[in-house]
Amino acid sequence: MNVQFTLNGKSATLSVDPMERLSDALRDRCGIQSMMNDCGIGLCGKCAVFLDGQLVPSCLVPMFKVRGRTVVTWEGFRGTAAHAAAAKAFGELGVELCGFCDAATMMAAGSLVAAPHEPTESEIVETMSSVYCRCASPTTVLAAARRALEAKSGKGRSRAAH
């Protein structure tokens, strides 16, 4: 079947098996290399993408579900203010990621920054726990996510002051 969708702001059409995983299609057919196509069972979160604005593991999304929807990968997300805030916070705290989970971790942290409401502590922990990797200390990853959110609320306060 032909599936038409929006990928990183551009229209894309793929001729695919309806049950093909979105993660496979993105990596093998669209050349998206930031995401890892790893566990294939929704466990590791390294294939995270935004599907209509919601962070999802793309290995659990069959291509027929993508028709007419908007997919944003790290390549499309990296230019956003949310990503910049997350990357800055991780950089400031010296969080060393392994080169495999970076994109998914940044997107998870960025999704918190981009959320329309102030995420609760439990949302922060759950969201950052959606990416599994043995590479970084839990404390520093969570601290970086919180710092990214502090920057967001700081921005909010500054906007309010103006």
């Binding site: 990296r78 990357a87 991780f90 950089g91 010296g94 080169g99 970076d102 971790t105 940044m106």
Partner: peptide, 12 residues
């Protein structure tokens, strides 16, 4: 690569 959080900016 301290503090690198950019998948493209990593030991290419």
């Amino acid at each position: 690569m301290t503090g690198t959080a950019d998948p493209e900016d990593r030991r290419p």
